[in-house]
């Protein structure tokens, strides 16, 4: 039984966001890329299942630029068996539905029983792609997974929702699962591990290999993103210091009532 983990290289969480001069796109030339943090939980979960004897192979798959190969290598160094990079050259700006169509084709070719990914990519903050892949393939999915237990042909899955509540599911495999932070703690990679991982199988495919014409997909894009702006600057606030604490607290509470009118 095989798991396929969908991973997306995203800018480091600390990265500053640089824009191209026309503000139509983010300029990633000088940005450090990492594995989307939620996808690391997905890789870790697949590796744990393999170690528990419930899986025989863990395959990583990503639709990204070939320049992000090192990011994929890091996933291999965690312990994945091999990887597939679908080169996004020429169609970097595909929308979620189109990315999902491509990834679904790649998943289908591998026919895994468990498809894992992150609950959300930290660049677009969408939470779309995994669920869309499930829909394209006609499979059930559970996203924001905090606990997973695989028992043969089924899995027991918990998902975190609002108010600290947890939805508990039983689902037939194959299933698409989106990992949340509290699922596990991803292992660290070592330098020797990374050296070894570079020798692991990493196939590069094009959309054409999966039966798609990148230009046709681009023309089908329905979500348009442009004119990126920084969040509105706030005027400096009123910060009190050096006075007796009671006076400062009193002032702030009064301001909350009389100026901000929120109490």
């Amino acid at each position: 039984m095989k798991a396929l983990v969908l991973i997306k290289p995203t800018p480091d969480t600390e990265a500053k966001i640089m824009l191209t001069s026309d503000r139509k796109a983010i300029d990633h030339a000088s940005t450090k890329f990492i594995i989307n943090p939620y996808d690391e939980f997905a890789i870790e979960e697949a590796l744990k299942l393999k170690e528990a004897g419930k899986l025989t192979e863990v395959v990583l798959c990503t639709f990204t630029s070939q320049t992000n190969k090192e990011v994929v290598v890091k996933g291999l160094a965690m312990g994945a068996d091999r990887a597939i990079i679908i080169d996004n050259q020429g169609c970097e700006s595909l929308d979620s539905a189109n990315v999902a169509r491509l990834l679904a084709a790649a998943v289908k070719a591998e026919s895994p029983q468990i498809i894992l990914g992150g609950k959300q990519a930290i660049d677009d903050d969408n939470m779309h792609v995994l669920t869309m892949v499930a829909e394209v393939l006609g499979l059930p999915h559970v996203n924001v997974v905090t606990k997973l237990e695989v028992n043969g042909e089924t899995a027991k899955v918990e998902r975190e929702v609002e108010g600290g509540q947890t939805e508990v599911y039983e689902v037939k495999l194959p299933v698409v699962l989106g990992a949340h932070k509290s699922l596990n703690s991803p292992r660290y990679t070592s330098l020797p591990g990374i050296m070894k991982a570079r020798k692991k199988q990493c196939d590069v495919k094009t959309p054409a290999d999966l039966g798609f014409d990148g230009a046709v997909l681009l023309a089908k894009n329905k979500a348009k993103f442009q004119n990126f702006q920084p969040p509105a600057e706030k005027p400096p606030g009123k910060v009190f210091k050096g006075e007796p604490l009671e006076d400062m607290v009193d002032k702030v509470v009064k301001l909350l009532r009389n100026e901000a009118k929120v109490i």
């Binding site: 930290i122 979500a223 993103f225 702006q229 969040p231």
Partner: peptide
């Protein structure tokens, strides 16, 4: 308008080419 990159930027967004389909 959609916040992205954990709110570090806000993008103008639009649905296009819907040709009669619901957005």
């Amino acid at each position: 308008k959609k916040p992205m990159f954990a709110g570090k930027t806000i993008a103008d967004v639009e649905l296009v080419e819907l040709s009669g389909k619901p957005g």
